[in-house]
Design a protein around this nucleic acid. Structure first.
Lengths: 139, 139
DNA sequence: TTTGGTGTTATAGTTAACTATAACACTGTC
DNA sequence: GACAGTGTTATAGTTAACTATAACACCAAA
């Protein structure tokens, strides 16, 4: 049930990020429908409009296509698009900050490894591609 | 000059984080006054109330003391407090997410190292402690 | 005492995020 | 056609973040 929301980011963006993660992890493959707006809204006890907003973001990014009366579906090429875009975004915008924090706190590889195990996996499904571990949101 | 603001987080929290970084980096030492609310507001062209809100956060965390008519000053023990608190917070709340993203995107140490050079810190001061890069993965 | 620097409070307005509730538009199936 | 599932739009209200402007409270030094 209710996965928790991170207060450091709007819900609709976290929703978008979760779908992105699911695509990257292979949980959602191209052509697959994503969980319906109403379902997600109910499951996470969130307003349908909020879910829609997150999904619309994906449409705007060209990752997802919306079909009225049917649902929303992962576009072909979505994963490839993501691997490029998200990588660049992460390396340019997030990693430098995180890296600086690590340096600043004097954290050692061992400590990081030890802490990397925590998880709050939104769903059970798992992909068998490579070494992907349970997902979470990113960004 | 105008530091830019990240739209993924409220300004007052980013302000708080910058002061924290300056304390950890030794730019601001215990007993030092932090830049005045009005100055910061002017320099970053931000509302004084927003700056105050960020500073108040630091007061609430026991890192800073406010002296009316004088300024706000770093408390003794602030750095130690931070090294404990921020470490735990980072390892528990931020790193797992980041680590998962790295795995998901299949980023390699070399790529991370290469990208770590930009904007490492809000201010100039840099700790020149050895360049330890997070490596490895559990499982 | 005046001046110029501090933090702080008061009013009030804008915007983004989220919410509740309801209705509309479309699609496949019974 | 009825129905049950989709996405979508409409109204309207709450809250948090940020803003502008102004005033108040305090302190040290001229």
């Amino acid at each position: 049930m209710g996965r928790e929301w991170n207060d450091s980011q709007p819900i609709y963006r976290q929703l978008r990020d979760r779908v992105v993660a699911m695509i990257l992890d292979g949980v959602l493959k191209e052509g697959d429908p994503l969980p319906s707006v109403r379902n997600v809204a109910a499951e996470y006890r969130v307003n349908p409009l909020t879910v829609l907003k997150g999904y619309q973001q994906l449409v705007d990014e060209g990752l997802v296509e919306s079909k009225r009366g049917l649902g929303m579906f992962i576009n072909t090429g979505a994963r490839k698009l993501l691997l490029q875009g998200e990588r660049q975004k992460f390396l340019a915008e997030e990693w430098p900050r995180v890296h600086a924090t690590i340096q600043r706190l004097g954290l050692k590889p061992e400590e990081l490894d030890a802490a990397a195990k925590r998880r709050s996996s939104p769903d059970g499904a798992q992909s068998k591609t490579a070494e992907s571990k349970p997902r979470k949101e990113e960004r």
